[in-house]
Nucleic acid binder design. Structure first.
Lengths: 111, 111
DNA sequence: TTGTTATATGAGCATATACGCATATAGTTG
DNA sequence: CAACTATATGCGTATATGCTCATATAACAA
């Protein structure tokens, strides 16, 4: 069922492209990677990322609006967590693909 | 082994982000989707995409440079094909995730 | 050679967005 | 109420990139 050819509308293509665009910024990937260990508040993410509070806040909002992160307010603090588990698999897939590419390049020079 | 926590360098994050950026344009996704059926030359892709020859050529080059497509010259024509099979899984994952999101939204209104 | 076809590319324009700075808002404490 | 903390946001700027138009290049044919 997962293998049947899909016919994609312009709207669907736009949504898919948007999802990839969300993941196309190194700073957002760093935040996601930090959140792989579990829920964190903004301040913790600011410290872990080495970026500014304003910048981190904006990226978190972008990720939350896209449904990638969940947002939970507790007093003064806001906690973000990964809401879409497919993110793990997406990153694993891309990492694996890039590693394979790199291996092939190395082998091409080694012969 | 695939589940061990990865520690990602800035360079690795940049490469991963770059791969996602490659997939973040609707026109490139349309070209990839068309190529799911098999190898095609530029002209066929121009017709299938409804875009201009210059634009399609540029996008194909972007995808080929990223290692997503392969390039084969035969006389006057150039044939492109999907070189990285992980693309199929990436698109399936994203489509599945977006469908799930949509379903949840519908259910939220239905209650 | 000249002409024709298929593809690639240089230049300019328009748009999107990441970032920094300053400030606003919300919640807590006194 | 004021003061403090945690987070969000408005604005300006710089950069990246997608698109169009025109032209260049490459391969083939006559």
């Amino acid at each position: 069922m997962a293998k049947k050819p899909r016919s994609l509308s312009d709207e669907a293509l736009g949504l898919i492209a948007r999802r990839f665009a969300i993941l196309s910024e190194p700073m957002r990937l760093r935040l996601l990677h930090t959140l792989f260990a579990g829920e964190l508040n903004v301040n913790a993410l600011v410290k872990a990322s080495g970026s500014t509070q304003a910048n981190v806040s904006r990226h978190l909002q972008t990720l939350a609006e896209a449904g990638v992160l969940s947002r939970r307010k507790e007093g003064l603090q806001v906690f973000y967590a990964i809401a879409d588990p497919s993110i793990f698999q997406l990153c694993e897939l891309v990492c694996g693909s890039l590693e394979k590419q790199h291996t092939k390049r190395v082998e091409a020079f080694a012969r």
